[in-house]
Simulated scan of single mutants.
Amino acid sequence: MTAAELVGKVFLPLSLAIIMLGMGMTLVPADFTRIIKYPKAILLGLTNQLLFLPLIGFALAIIFELNPVTAIGLMILASCPGGPTSNLITQVCKGNIALSVTLTAIASFVSILTIPFILSYALAYFGSTTDIAIKLPIMDTIIQIMGITVIPISIGMFIRRRRTEFAKRMERPMRIASTVIFILVFIAVLAANSEKLVEGMKEAGLVTLILNLATMGLGYMTAKLFKLNLKNVISITIESGIQNGTLAFVIATSILNNIEMGIPTGAYSIWMFITGGFLMWYFGKRSDVDAK
């Protein structure tokens, strides 16, 4: 097994499972019932994440005439809605953390079904123009996604319920560990495939930047259109534009066994941390957000 295969098939799925376990330790059943309290905001956020994000990604892949592998890689990213990173950024931006966590939690579970559906269509549409044989085993994909997302989250929630104080004490260490693990594995993936990185950035750099700005802009405009308060606007904006890059990497490298399909996620991760950092600086220093 090569270094790239070891990182993609072992360390990357393991890192995602650890991150999801940490997120599960921050969740309680009430996080999934907040749809009653924030029905308009929840519905809007999920629509942006699960419907408009893949549609925008698909449109950009066609407009930019991406090669099949890059196009499918972009669709992998677009099918993976917000992960734990969005919750952290929302917290720093003084957004509605409860809304952010609820959107992340619900989208994580719903995406078990939407990801195979979206990718099956993308593989059929873009894969038809290439000699590369890529197939998505739907049931295996669902099982693998459950194994690295739903099961760790459920275990984390069980720990939170049975050992509440321990879970609360572990929130900050797990958040830090999750970030460090993601960064280390992300660097390892890029290092193991450094020769393809420059070419990949040329191919996917601009389109992933536009995808990030477009989805964040859509989140902001739709939240304003539906007259949500500022805290909810911040949460919807971030949840719409910060995707679960770790899950996208796992799908590309471990499930579809194609490192090149992970390049768009690598480029997007760079952009979303830059734009997310700007939002943290902009909203973090605004005193009026606290009053909303």
Rank of each mutant, 00 (worst) to 15 (best):
R161T: 08
E260N: 14
Y268K: 06
F166R: 10
F126E: 01
V198T: 11
L206D: 08
T208F: 01
G95S: 13
L46R: 08
L123G: 12
I242T: 05
L21F: 15
L206V: 14
Q243L: 14
F126M: 00
S100C: 13
F283G: 03
A252F: 06
S287M: 09
P81L: 12
E5C: 07
A124D: 09
Y268P: 04
G57P: 02
A214M: 14
V207T: 13
I236H: 04
P152L: 11
S154W: 03
L209F: 15
V69I: 15
S235W: 03
I187K: 07
L99F: 06
G156V: 08
M174R: 00
A17W: 09
G8N: 04
L21N: 03
L21R: 05
I63P: 11
G147T: 04
A78N: 02
P173N: 09
G156L: 09
I143L: 15
I118Y: 06
L225G: 15
F158H: 06
R169A: 02
F109E: 07
I153V: 15
F64I: 10
S79D: 11
I63Q: 13
F283D: 01
N257L: 07
K292D: 14
I274P: 07
L12Y: 03
C93V: 00
P152R: 08
E199T: 14
F273E: 01
T265F: 03
K135L: 09
L16C: 02
P137W: 07
V10G: 09
I251T: 02
T129K: 13
G147N: 01
V207G: 09
E199I: 13
P29A: 12
I263D: 01
I255N: 01
I106G: 11
N258G: 10
I106L: 13
F182K: 00
M146C: 15
I145W: 00
M20E: 10
I42Y: 10
I132W: 03
P39H: 12
G284T: 12
A167E: 00
L209N: 08
A188T: 03
M25Y: 03
N212Y: 04
S287Y: 07
S254D: 12
S287V: 12
L14Q: 09
K168C: 11
G22A: 05
I115A: 05
S235K: 04
M25N: 02
F52K: 06
L46F: 12
I42M: 15
E171P: 06
M272L: 13
G22R: 00
L55A: 06
F278M: 15
T208R: 02
T33F: 13
L14C: 14
F249G: 00
L12T: 08
G73F: 03
A192G: 15
